[in-house]
Amino acid sequence: MSEYDNYIDITAAVCPITFVKVKVALERTDDGKILYIKLNDGEPIQNIPRSLKDEGHKVVKIENNGDGTYGLYVVKNGL
């Protein structure tokens, strides 16, 4: 796992609350810093990277944890 400044686990949440929780975590993250998001396969991994990009954040790495979850590293307002 790489370095990050803030962390959120949304594997227990259901869309669209998944992205809502990500937004809350981003709010608590400074510009330019990295948020690590643990999310599920399926709707979350399909939609969240694109939603983040739409809002100006830069996804820098996605890790497949091999257990049905992914780890996503995003730079706040990094685009």
Partner: peptide, 19 residues
């Protein structure tokens, strides 16, 4: 969590968000 659920349709909007 209840507030996040209640206001989720607002928070999803780029122009609104959590702030």
């Amino acid at each position: 969590d209840e507030m996040l659920e209640r206001y989720s349709r607002h928070i999803l909007l780029k122009e609104v968000g959590v702030s």
